[in-house]
């Protein structure tokens, strides 16, 4: 389980070539929070996620971690990189086998004592045992998404940021992704998802947010297709 935490981001502003993308955006994320962020193409969903993850520098932003003093993004950057994990829309697979991808991640987490056992465990969790020796780049989009989530499991971040995690996935791939995201939420990890289709994630009972006119606003999510996870698990023998 993840220890209690909360990250408060305030006044996030970002512009590209004189065009304002985000203007005074604020968001607070704590244990097991689930946010579903929607918005038009180019609205700034990915930019926001990358700023939160410490990858992209904002024009301005204040961050409070666990009721500490408000700090600038720059001074918090390494802490953000340690605590938040950003998953690309198309996950990048490192050269080598699927197992190498997981071992790479396990090696970087000092909390993992028995790396071999940890890798075996996530291979089972992500149902990737049969593919472990395959070249990671040769895996399908859905399988790569599972590898990315398996790496995240080994990394064990406080906040998991996913950029269109179900784009280009078939129904089976989507459902598997949702089950894995549920497991993250259950273990205390907060999940933030940027998507065009929030209805896919209704089962996560997330809080809907919408980026429009450079602002982040509340928005309810209406289900279009509700996934019954227990039925799915029974049908798949999970």
């Amino acid at each position: 389980m993840i220890d209690n935490f909360h990250f408060s981001f305030h006044g996030i502003c970002k512009h590209y070539r004189r065009k304002s993308i985000l203007n005074d955006v604020s968001i607070t994320i704590g244990n097991s929070d689930c946010y579903i962020i929607t918005g038009e193409n180019g609205a700034g969903k990915t930019t926001l996620m990358r700023i939160l993850a410490g990858i992209e520098k904002p024009d301005s932003a204040n961050i409070r971690i666990n009721d500490g003093a408000a700090l600038s993004w720059r001074s918090c950057r390494s802490r953000l990189s340690q605590s938040l994990m950003y998953l690309h829309q198309q996950p990048y697979m490192l050269a080598g086998s699927l197992r190498r991808n997981l071992e790479f991640t396990a090696k970087l987490n000092p909390a993992i004592i028995d790396r071999v056992a940890a890798v075996e465990q996530v291979l089972q969790w992500a149902r990737l045992e049969a593919l472990e020796s395959q070249q990671a780049v040769s895996l399908s989009g859905g399988q790569q998404q599972r590898v990315a989530l398996a790496r995240a499991r080994l990394r064990n971040p406080q906040i998991l940021l996913l950029d269109e995690p179900t784009a280009n996935l078939d129904i089976d791939g989507r459902d598997r992704t949702l089950i894995m995201l549920k497991a993250f939420l259950k273990s205390g990890t907060a999940v933030v998802i940027a998507t065009h289709d929030p209805s896919i994630f209704t089962n996560l009972k997330g809080h809907g947010l919408h980026i429009e006119d450079q602002k982040l606003r509340d928005k309810s999510i209406t289900p279009s297709r509700v996934l019954d996870i227990s039925d799915y698990q029974k049908s798949r023998g999970i």
Partner: peptide, 22 residues
């Protein structure tokens, strides 16, 4: 090179030097 390689290494917990070697 694909910039996601650097970002992935960093987001997986690699420090700058380790991400560079990645």
């Amino acid at each position: 090179s694909d910039r996601r390689a650097w970002e992935t290494a960093r987001t997986l917990g690699a420090n700058r030097l380790y991400a560079f070697f990645t």
